[in-house]
Design a binder for these strands. Structure first.
Lengths: 84, 84
DNA sequence: ATAGTATTTAGATATTTGTCTAAATAACTA
DNA sequence: TAGTTATTTAGACAAATATCTAAATACTAT
């Protein structure tokens, strides 16, 4: 749980997640969307990946990132136990 | 959303929330449960309160804290929009 | 009033985090 | 092979965070 909350505790990372909700994107496409250096985006992607919130797949020269929604189950479950 | 994620991004604060799930507690009772100074716990309570995750009510000499589950709706909603 | 208890505020400090630039790695292209 | 593009790794640094002790505030009780 720690890594999930850590990963979500950043506006840029949450926006990356929202982008990936609509379609898979490679690192460069993601970076284009932000006013931030590519290494910084790469770092954010790494944190999201460690939290299992996204997955990556090498496609030739590019690395494509996808959202992993299954891990969000854990989060929802944690919240639901609080609500009663 | 920012303040919610920030508040949840700490093991101690998540444990406080879990304690308050079962029953309201005053600051001293909460502090007893942790191997940490009272001012530190007070600080965590402040962050939880700013995020609206808990509420406080003065009861004479004590301050009683309660969980505010309604704010968790926002969080669940945010997650749910990702899952489709 | 004075002393005691509950809690927070203030100020200090070490650690973590987000960002950058420069360099490294990996893959494609000619 | 050499050059170009895509991405990450390394190292530095400023800002944010979690913690502590000491002091302040607020209430209770004698």
């Amino acid at each position: 749980m720690n890594s999930i909350f850590k990963a979500l505790n950043d506006e840029t990372r949450r926006e990356i997640i929202e982008l990936l909700k609509d379609r898979d994107m490679n690192a460069g496409q993601i970076a284009e969307r932000f006013n931030m250096s590519k290494p910084s985006i790469s770092h954010h992607l790494d944190i999201l990946k460690r939290a299992d919130l996204i997955t990556s797949e090498k496609k030739g020269q590019f690395i494509e990132y996808s959202l992993n929604t299954t891990i969000l189950e854990d989060l929802v479950n944690w919240i639901m136990t609080l609500k009663k």
